[in-house]
């Protein structure tokens, strides 16, 4: 049982809640490994994915997760522009409530939008990424991957490289990892570093080597091409050279370190193909972890109080 009606972010979740989700996610992953896609936990429940931003993997993952647990699923895609002219988020939420939707999985370009929706509706709300705020299921799947590899998260050193400023993945990971006792080091171009990341508990490093030094986990972040047009860096080539991760740099991390990435990866930009396809990469495994985490989130959120 979670203490909250909604999962809006790891900043708000308590350590025990995070541990509960991860613990169930491990069991879900075992089921997936065994090929079991016929869960009944969400039988009779309806889950709507309400996406105001394009996404393939997160949306597919949530829909599979819901279906594998026996839920009805509906997906609503909305082009942000038409929504801004038409129905408001609040009204859309009320409509889904009236349709007896049990869980709304929302992705939205504006931070705080899931919180607004959660305030409006009786349905459970899961944040599948809001603006630059949080992406809790991504961080939880990263954490599940880490637990699988290292047993526990306490004491791990996690290095995050790349566009921290725009990254909801970095924020959610930071909040979750800190709660479970890991330390987080980051390195980013100064133009893509938020003003107060160290105040949130991260160690802001002045080089890739420093961030990677002794790391158990190295997390790359996707760089959006439009950041170049906005003048955040001169070119993708230069970004790759000064801020990307290749096999040589990876040697600064611990020998058994793993590499994660929320995907989709720009090959040869934030990570070289050698890293992506190398023995330390956990990127593919993360996708299955994502499914398991989302199954756990949906299950715990809809559990009936006894």
């Amino acid at each position: 049982m979670l203490k909250h009606k909604d999962i809006l972010g790891l900043y708000d979740l308590e350590r025990e809640e995070i541990e509960e989700i991860l613990s169930l996610a491990h069991r879900m992953k075992d089921r997936l490994r065994a090929g079991d896609k016929h869960g009944t936990e969400l039988e009779g429940k309806s889950v709507t994915t309400l996406f105001y931003e394009n996404s393939t993997r997160t949306r597919t993952s949530f829909e599979y997760a819901a279906k594998f647990l026996g839920a009805h699923t509906v997906s609503v895609s909305v082009a942000t522009s038409s929504v801004r002219k038409g129905e408001t988020l609040v009204d859309t939420g009320k409509t889904l409530d009236a349709l007896r939707c049990d869980v709304i999985v929302i992705r939205h370009p504006v931070g705080g939008a899931p919180a607004l929706l959660a305030k409006t509706v009786g349905a459970h709300v899961i944040n599948a990424g809001d603006g630059m705020n949080e992406h809790p299921s991504q961080a939880l799947l990263d954490m599940l991957t880490m637990e699988e590899k290292f047993g526990s998260i306490g004491g791990l050193k996690v290095a995050i490289l790349g566009d921290i400023l725009h990254s909801r993945v970095a924020r959610s990971n930071l909040y979750g990892l800190k709660k479970l006792g890991a330390s987080v080091s980051v390195y980013a171009p100064r133009t893509l570093l938020p003003p107060a990341f160290s105040e949130l508990g991260a160690t802001v490093c002045s080089s890739r080597e420093e961030a990677l030094d002794g790391a158990d986990v190295v997390m790359g972040l996707r760089i959006q091409l439009e950041r170049q047009k906005a003048g955040n860096f001169p070119s993708l080539g230069e970004y790759a050279k000064y801020y990307g991760l290749d096999e040589a740099l990876l040697k600064y991390a611990k020998k058994g370190a793993i590499v994660t990435h929320p995907g989709p990866v720009n090959r040869g930009v934030e990570l070289t193909s050698g890293v992506i396809d190398g023995p330390q990469s956990a990127i593919e495994e993360q996708v299955t972890s994502g499914l398991a985490v989302r199954m756990a989130m949906l299950t715990l959120l809809t559990e009936e109080t006894l």
Partner: peptide, 21 residues
């Protein structure tokens, strides 16, 4: 300002809302 809606500082970092300096 470039689309910033809040002050760029601790709370813009925390909320992920776009800050302006």
């Amino acid at each position: 300002v470039n689309g910033g809606v809040v002050h760029a500082g601790y709370y813009s970092t925390l909320t992920g809302l776009k800050g302006s300096i």
